[in-house]
Design a protein around this nucleic acid. Structure first.
Lengths: 335, 335
DNA sequence: TTACCATATGGACTCGAGTCCACATTCATG
DNA sequence: CATGAATGTGGACTCGAGTCCATATGGTAA
């Protein structure tokens, strides 16, 4: 690999001048500039980013920690991150981190990254201790809880999202609505569950424990959704709608219903949250609340670079809006 | 951030000694070692990987170029890559590259990566000119064609995979078998298509052009699969089985069949290739040929590090075995 | 003519860690 | 006791690029 010195020799100038040409600062005579550019061309010279990083104390790279590549929700977020990052000359590394694999945390602190994006469930953030980490490296996170993480964060208002979904179902005449979602240690930190509860209460509807189906926060979301609804069906609990916490759970629910010969949406309506690609693929197409996933990615990068460039210290919290996408899986209650 | 010099000062030794303690080479007195370790602990010192990389001309990182995160096939490959890489102390950056975004190629050559893994369709590899690129940086690729890329590559024998699938269908009594897959410029470079053709011919079956359904190599594989099969159904072309080139196409086909009220596998059998997670999620569960995806990731990393560590120059080609996973979407022809 | 400023170029130091070499010790062996 | 090997430590240079400062030339205004 050719270095700056090689280029300088070939062009008959000093390395300093080569730098000036490359970074376009300081004075360089036109003919010298051309000679240097020619030498660069001939030697196929590409400046060494490692050396540059050492000097500049900025390496133009950040790490992105996720915990499951197979969750399609994160794909679009990642695309948003990549777009925003590359646009500003940043690249990013992907860490597929789980509770067991935290050893890699140290790798991340080795100065190879200007910042860190956390795209993992809250459980993992808690274990890692984000606040402490943020003291050592610029950091931001996406989170789906209604709590203050104490670090720069992007969130969407899932409380409103779920509440709106349930209100919509109630508006269609549904009364026996199954909640399908994750269980948090503290219910009040669970925006989706609270949205469900409040929407029901505001319409004078009781919460029937039999209709509240919690699912552990594991990999196989689709299967888990199917299992919960199969159980409800097996226990002959009556219901006319399912409000799922995400699209994978909703699709799992749809699969269970289809297996039982239950028609969607004539017998039971199903609504999700996220609007992943699959939501528009299944039959019937899933009505769901769209989360602006690539916007989340963009905001995460913006928050990160704000810290890197301007050294912002006070944690900023961004909340992004959502909207219902009406498709075929929901309909009025048949009398 | 504390540096080696800070640690040295605090421990009352020279930076050289700190290096010796860290890398565990050369002689260090026991009490000195302990003092240094204590200083490291107190200062929360982490060696700077950028500086180390500059000196060592090895940065412990490679880039992985893919062209679609949403293709679930690559997830497991990526996991395999990550596992193998992190195990050897390497991290990797993800480049979600498309034909339009090749500008990033230059970023990759800036010495920030020890090697490059290509996980993209052949079309992109061709445009980028892998052979030329391989002269500048260690490189390896996963490919799904029966051609020699001229660089280190991992492949699976898709010809045999498809041929075995079709033979299996023929063994179940099927004669009118739809081929659903991508179209290559040269058919002889299309292992899946050739496998289909040869299996048919070996059983004395003609290739009916109406049964050969090519699909452009675009993002929305699932939808495209559905569309092709819907068209076959609309044109009242008779068939009793679909041999799809991958699981997404197969699932798309299943969706089309279900929409038409065609029973799987009683009326039509469907078989795929890949065995992505979704294959076991759909109803009925998809019979498919499993491709050892995480093994592919492992092999790719091995090939890459062989080059980095031992400077292997002669392109090595690895081929991995496959097997049929029998599930519910295939069955004998009903008379 | 002198003074000053814009233009143009190179020297030398720096970033943080690795490493060769020089220089002290200490210890065992002939 | 002398010699050499094993042990222990630090100085100085290096990796490749950025940048401050010194220097040189040309031009213009006082």
């Amino acid at each position: 690999m050719a270095t700056r010195v090689d280029v300088a020799k070939r062009a008959g100038v000093s390395p300093t001048t080569v730098s000036r040409v490359l970074n376009d600062n300081g004075y360089v005579a036109q003919d010298v500039r051309e000679r240097v550019l020619k030498a660069i061309e001939e030697l196929q010279y590409v400046p060494n980013r490692v050396a540059r990083s050492l000097k500049m104390k900025r390496c133009g790279q950040f790490a992105c920690v996720i915990s499951s590549l197979s969750n399609p929700f994160y794909h679009e977020v990642l695309m948003g991150i990549e777009d925003a990052a590359l646009q500003r000359g940043y690249t990013f590394s992907l860490y597929n981190m789980t509770q067991e694999k935290q050893g890699y945390m140290k790798l991340i602190l080795e100065g190879f990254y200007d910042g860190l994006v956390f795209l993992t469930p809250y459980e993992l953030m808690k274990v890692v201790d984000l606040v402490d980490l943020a003291k050592r490296i610029p950091l931001c996170a996406y989170q789906d809880r209604s709590i203050d993480l104490g670090v720069h964060a992007v969130a969407v208002d899932l409380y409103t999202a779920m509440k709106r979904n349930v209100q919509y179902l109630i508006g269609l005449g549904h009364r026996r609505i199954v909640f399908l979602g994750y269980e948090f240690e503290r219910a009040e930190e669970n925006p989706r569950y609270m949205g469900y509860v409040d929407a029901m209460h505001e319409h004078g509807l009781e919460i029937d424990p039999a209709l509240v189906q919690f699912v552990p926060n594991l990999k196989d979301t689709l299967t888990l959704g199917r299992q919960r609804i199969l159980e409800v069906l097996n226990r002959s609990i009556s219901f006319t709608a399912v409000a799922a916490s995400n699209d994978l759970l909703a699709v799992g629910a749809m699969r269970a219903l289809t297996e039982w010969g239950v028609n969607i949406p004539n017998d039971v309506s199903v609504i999700g949250i996220d609007d992943v690609e699959m939501a528009n693929m299944v039959t019937p197409a899933l009505t769901t609340t769209r989360i602006p996933k690539s916007d989340i990615g963009n905001e995460l990068v913006r928050l990160l670079l704000d810290q890197v460039d301007r050294g912002l210290d006070i944690p900023e919290n961004v909340s992004l809006p959502t909207e219902i996408i009406y498709r075929e899986s929901t309909g009025p209650v048949k009398s």
